[in-house]
Design a protein around this nucleic acid. Structure first.
Length: 734
DNA sequence: GAGTTTGAAACT
DNA sequence: CAGTTTCAAACTC
């Protein structure tokens, strides 16, 4: 749309010319003046696309790290694309919004068109994303944008100068806001959706993160860092590696975020307070992270809308990223650069650098020295990848072997698909879908094989895994690579967003994250006194509302969790084999049978009391309404030692064989809640959902959860499934 | 594997 | 707060 401006004459070549001497782009870059007074926005200037929805409520400040333009791409191609996402703290004000920025370096206008079909472009890029925002007045950058027509516009802006991030930020924000008017319906809808969801939480995080692909780029169920670190990166040839300034900040964040070998790949992930760039090469399955500073100086920075981040990179055979292309990603421009200020933290090599845009930290690198280069502060990541849509994007958790990328990588097509979904599914990307499905299948296969972690292996498509629809979210765990969700934001990268959403959800419903069914396993003893447990369930207190399933199918939460329905249930025609709601007789025939056979019924009741005591100790609330069953469909391999407490009238330990595991343990106590099993008890009981589907032993560290965590609602949220790795997901206070 | 059913969650 | 819609899992074919 915007014709490229001719670059001003001048200048110092920032880049390492040796590599790209022959590149016109390089020449161009060299000709640009790195630092200069801010220029007014002009058509020629960077075009920035935003997703109004994302931005509307957000103000964003962007810092563009200054990068040494050393590695320019070959002519006619984009060297790289950097997406810089920045996370903001929840309390970030509008001005403090963290936004992910995509920085593109485009050498030739043609690239985008190659990758993205016009139609796609049209869809992805609303015709009226008018506003380009320049955060930095003087930025050198070739901006390539696509118009609604699907045309790729290339604008070359030559900027000199420092960018005063603060000043421009505001402008950029305003512009961004204004840009919303031009959005197409899809964008508006999406924006609305997200704004609604996130606004309360300072959308910033979400935006910035989602900008990286809605979490598509990174899904973490496990410690992302650890996994990534453990991976060998293959992308040695990432363009940026050389251009990067090896400045190590010693930033704790950086260390925390060390994901990939800095020399390779690039992907940008941002947490609330930091961002990194990640690039993944699909073909090689390479993923690399680069600090913003690593990016080429000539860049177009853009803010990427939460949902629309999608890039494909074309990688030349030589391993250089030839082109970067935005496949239908609405972008926000972000171009703040504070020269000489510490907008960005720079990390060399594998280290990530983070930009903290939020609040006080705005424009300050988090705990890291600022590495400012004159010229344009942009982050460019080039990733070697084939031109196909299969280019993987990084996702956290353990990838199935099929993925040859060290990091969890989602194919571009998948990402595309996700984006597609995000955008109202009006577009179709056959290839992407196929790719996605394929990986999806792989994941499922893996799951079937028992692989996976504490995550719930959700398959969310529209909820971004930020609603209780999402089993993972409901369980307060991050999604992992084993999930097949799309547009996932429930990951470490978006941890603050997740936290915000959780809070919001909880504010709406304090019991939202309470276990669907209280099993009373939360006595600390079982878990080493882990206090990180959710209060006894509330959900089950609400009870099910089954009408057609007669509480005999897993549609019924009670049934799924293997407990009888309670007074709280409003089910119709309850036939819950674990205990019917009618008459509040909690025991099933089987249970009674078992109880009689063992003569343990009375003891069980007492145990129930004991449980209460235990629970009380743990601060959990017990519902007398609930009956809890810990049925096991599997043959009971062992007897259960029921703990006795001094408080219990019957102190004798009860050894309860579980021959009839399924319903046997359902206890009925008309006047009391029982069912709270002592931890010791619990540990010895293996609970299996009726059909075992979605119920798998919860691995808590090395231990199994007493009750298999089954579906979304049955998950004992009080039990951290993978505390250390999931970060706050499991341990976060409720 | 695709489509339908189901009921909780979210929205109005 | 009730009714409706949305969502993702469960289920069926």
């Amino acid at each position: 749309m915007d014709p490229p401006e001719s670059p001003p004459a001048g200048q110092p070549s920032l880049a390492d010319a040796s590599l790209y001497e022959d590149s016109p782009v390089f020449d161009f870059i060299n000709s640009l003046s790195p630092i200069g007074p801010p220029k007014p926005l002009g058509p020629a200037q960077n075009v920035q696309l935003f997703k109004s929805s994302d931005l509307a409520s957000l103000s964003s400040i962007f810092t563009s790290p200054q990068v040494n333009p050393q590695k320019e791409t070959k002519p006619g191609t984009r060297d790289g694309y950097a997406l810089l996402s920045q996370g903001l703290s929840p309390n970030c004000q509008r001005n403090q919004i963290g936004i992910s920025s995509c920085i593109e370096l485009s050498g030739s206008p043609t690239v985008a068109s190659e990758i993205c079909s016009p139609s796609e472009d049209a869809t992805i890029f609303p015709s009226k994303w008018p506003q380009s925002i320049q955060l930095g007045s003087e930025t050198l950058g070739v901006a390539e944008t696509q118009d609604t027509d699907g045309k790729a516009d290339h604008g070359a802006d030559v900027g000199q100068g420092k960018l005063s991030s603060s000043g421009y930020d505001q402008n950029g924000i305003d512009q961004m806001d204004s840009s919303t008017s031009g959005r197409n319906v899809q964008e508006n809808e999406l924006a609305k959706q997200y704004n609604d969801d996130l606004a309360a939480c300072s959308l910033n995080h979400l935006i910035s993160h989602s900008g990286t692909g809605n979490g598509v780029m990174s899904k973490s169920g496990l410690s992302l860092e650890a996994q990534q670190l453990s991976w060998n990166l293959k992308c040695d040839d990432v363009i940026f590696s050389k251009s990067l300034m090896p400045v190590d900040q010693g930033n704790s964040e950086a260390s925390r975020r060390k994901l990939l070998d800095g020399s390779t790949g690039c992907y940008i992930q941002s947490t609330a307070d930091n961002a990194h760039v990640q690039c993944a090469g699909a073909a090689e399955g390479v993923a690399t992270n680069h600090g913003p500073e690593m990016l080429p100086s000539v860049i177009r920075s853009q803010l990427v809308s939460n949902e629309h981040f999608f890039n494909t990179f074309k990688v030349p055979s030589d391993g250089m990223a030839l082109t970067e292309h935005q496949c239908g990603m609405p972008r926000r421009s972000l171009f703040n650069e504070k020269v000489g200020s510490s907008d960005m933290s720079v990390q060399s090599g594998s280290n990530l650098h983070h930009a903290n845009i939020c609040g006080d930290n705005y424009l300050k690198p988090v705990g890291s020295p600022v590495y400012a280069l004159s010229g344009i502060g942009l982050h460019l990541n080039a990733v070697a990848s084939n031109s196909s849509n299969n280019m993987p994007f990084t996702i956290n958790p353990p990838l199935p072997p099929e993925h040859n990328s060290p990091t969890t990588i989602v194919s571009c097509s998948e990402l595309y698909t996700r984006i597609h979904d995000d955008h109202s599914s009006q577009k179709t990307m056959p290839n992407a879908d196929e790719s996605f499905q394929e990986s999806h299948k792989k994941r499922r296969r893996k799951l079937k094989n028992g692989d996976g972690d504490s995550c719930r292996h959700c398959s969310c498509k529209k909820s971004k895994c930020l609603k209780l629809y999402c089993a993972c979210f409901a369980a307060k765990v991050y999604c992992s690579g084993y999930c097949s969700c799309q547009g996932c934001l429930n990951n470490h990268t978006h941890e603050e967003t997740v936290s915000c959403i959780r809070k919001r959800t909880e504010s709406r419903n304090p019991l939202a994250f309470a276990p669907t069914v209280t099993h009373g396993f939360d006595s600390g003893s079982d878990f080493g006194g882990d206090s990180n447990q959710t209060p006894a369930s509330a959900r089950h207190k609400r009870g099910c509302n089954c009408r057609k399933s007669s509480c005999l199918k897993k549609y019924c939460e009670c049934f799924q969790s293997g407990v009888g329905c309670s007074m709280s249930c409003r089910c119709e025609g309850c036939k819950n084999s674990f205990g019917k709601r009618e008459g509040m007789l909690l025991a099933t025939e089987k249970m009674e049978k078992g109880a009689k056979a063992k003569g343990t019924r009375l003891k069980e009741e007492k145990l129930g009391f004991e449980k209460q005591d235990v629970v009380g100790q743990s601060g959990d609330l017990l519902s007398t309404e609930n009956l809890y069953a810990t049925p096991s469909l599997e043959p009971c391999r062992s007897s259960i030692l029921l703990p006795s407490t001094s408080q219990s009238p019957m102190k004798a330990d009860v050894l309860l064989p579980l021959e009839t595991c399924a319903a046997e343990m359902i206890l009925e106590d008309g006047s009391s809640n029982i069912q709270e099993m002592s931890s010791s008890w619990v540990t010895s009981v293996k609970v299996v959902s009726p059909n075992k589907k979605r119920v798998s032993p919860l691995h808590i560290g090395t231990r199994l959860s007493p009750i298999g965590r089954s579906g979304r609602k049955l998950i004992l949220k009080s039990i951290p499934s993978f505390p250390s790795l999931t970060g706050d997901a499991d341990s976060e206070p409720h």
